[in-house]
Design a protein around this nucleic acid. Structure first.
Lengths: 309, 309
DNA sequence: TTCATTCTGTGAGTTTACCGCACATAGGAT
DNA sequence: ATCCTATGTGCGGTAAACTCACAGAATGAA
């Protein structure tokens, strides 16, 4: 006897609302508006020909029919969810990674060829996401982000990659001849800012215990950190950059960091929900790569008055 | 941990295709085209990041991932289906009845008040359906139809209501004074036909062993049997009518049936899939009502040459 | 009581998912 | 070789589903 299921989306909306007791809560869980849930449930009631919720509009309660319907649906959805999880945990499925966009472009992608070479069977799918990603809702295997508020009720597994170290960098062509100790005078240089991280200079100055640059100095603001770094490389001015994003450039001499780097307080972390072979391999590789660039020249003795007047 | 299910419709399409082994079969089951199933599965593969079918296009086979996904989905959908069935079987739900439209209007609806009075807790929802209704696919509790091809592999439970008895009827005002034996001369009357049942006169003439009306006679064709009956009642001519639809009119004298009625071979039946309290009550009531009108005057001696020249 | 808050119901308008159609493509069978 | 069967896909249309904004109704606090 064939199945005769009503709209699956309506069933899902009802299941969430019935389980949580409120349509608004279901709307949150399903990432839709309460109106959408309300309509879906009404539609389901019409199709089935039986009221599922009753009582006051502000505090609806399940009817007998609703109570009869709920457990089977919850069970059914749970089983389907388990099946999907098992499927995407299999080795053949891609490894989905969410990552801060600048980190993605300047750190992860340049190194990823090594992971691919070592793990030819694992297909990595990258996605740039600069706003907070809800690891409970989105289907990512690993999320690389900065640890700001470790307040989640059930915190996901977390691998600390490294603490962010900030320091001013600029192209060598822009700087006057460095003094014998390697320091250079940054004061005359234009200052580069980034719209999405306006507190970069302030964070650095607090961490380095040095005054921020004079607001009166020539400055340019870019939409994206990636542009700012490119601008610094192109010799447009000096910007505050995280060590891990410029380590290769500093080591190769494409950028100079005359003031060294200081911890900003941010910590880069990789988070995951389910440990499987793919996730383990990737996180292990991340840890290796992170360790390889960990030695930031934070001990570099900065000239006392360099960055500002 | 919240669920992270991909599109439910895509999951359903995959489940059907994987279970049946062919996308076309899934398309049949889901009552969509094969293209729709193909797209849904491709979409699912993209979202999950894992191929589910492989092999030749003409004979796709499940991948390991697909095999891992299928049983959980089947189980989940089955549980949901069971929950929905239990819910609609509950007393609070409506009783959904599909019915041939003329039968609905001229037989079921006029009698339904008695069912409602006797079963105030059961809400009947009627739907007219003149083409064949697949009781396995549509969500009806009872389907009233004519038994034509009892060839279904797993025939549903069936209640025979009565055999169809056909006979010519006309309004008394249209007929000349009847002869002493109650017969009347139908020959001069216009003949009423129905588009959806053009074989009515032929069926009757075969059953009654009388010649069909002369095609040269004045005739009118109506779109729907209901109109034809109304036309006969209004004195527009003579039509072949099933006894159960005109019994009340004949008994009250609004229609005359000078030739009596003869079995057409069609049998009216009620079918259902799941027996529950509502279905039982309704079918029992149907049987009662059917029995109450069963006595068609088929023994009425027709004049040998009445209907035709 | 009265007001503020919270939650659901709903009309209007918009987006998007989904589907059908028609054709292309590709194995497998006779 | 040719037919048959089954899936892949571009295009276009439609209905489902959603958002928005507002209304209505119950709860709790002042």
């Amino acid at each position: 006897m064939k199945r005769r299921l009503p709209s699956l989306n309506a069933l899902r909306a009802f299941e969430a609302a019935a389980r949580l007791g409120r349509m608004s809560a279901a709307a949150d869980e399903l990432a839709v508006t309460h109106g959408a849930v309300s309509r879906q449930i009404r539609h389901l009631e019409e199709v089935l020909g039986v009221p599922l919720f009753a009582g006051s509009k502000a505090r609806p309660t399940l009817t007998d029919a609703g109570r009869a319907l709920l457990p089977g649906l919850t069970d059914g959805f749970d089983r389907m969810d388990a099946a999907v999880r098992a499927c995407v945990d299999a080795d053949g499925a891609t490894l989905d990674v969410s990552c801060l966009s600048t980190f993605l472009m300047r750190w992860l992608i340049p190194r990823l060829h090594r992971f691919n070479a070592a793990n030819p069977g694992i297909d990595v799918r990258l996605r740039a996401a600069d706003q907070a990603v809800d690891i409970d809702r989105e289907r990512f295997d690993v999320i690389i982000t900065v640890d700001e508020s470790p307040s989640a009720a059930t915190p996901p597994a977390t691998l600390t990659l490294f603490a962010e170290m900030l320091g001013p960098v600029a192209a060598p062509a822009l700087l006057p001849a460095p003094s014998p100790d390697g320091a250079a005078d940054l004061r005359p240089l234009p200052v580069l800012h980034t719209k999405t991280r306006r507190n970069a200079w302030a964070m650095w100055s607090a961490a380095a215990n040095l005054p921020p640059p004079d607001p009166a100095r020539i400055s340019t603001e870019f939409e994206h950190y990636y542009y700012t770094l490119e601008a610094a490389l192109a010799g447009l001015g000096v910007c505050v950059a995280p060590w891990h994003l410029v380590a290769d450039d500093v080591r190769s001499g494409r950028l100079l960091a005359p003031c060294g780097f200081h911890a900003s307080g941010y910590v880069y972390v990789a988070q995951w929900r389910r440990r499987n072979r793919k996730t383990e391999r990737f996180c292990a590789w991340l840890a290796e790569e992170a360790a390889a660039i960990a030695a930031a020249p934070q001990a570099f003795p900065p000239p006392a008055d360099l960055p500002n007047s």
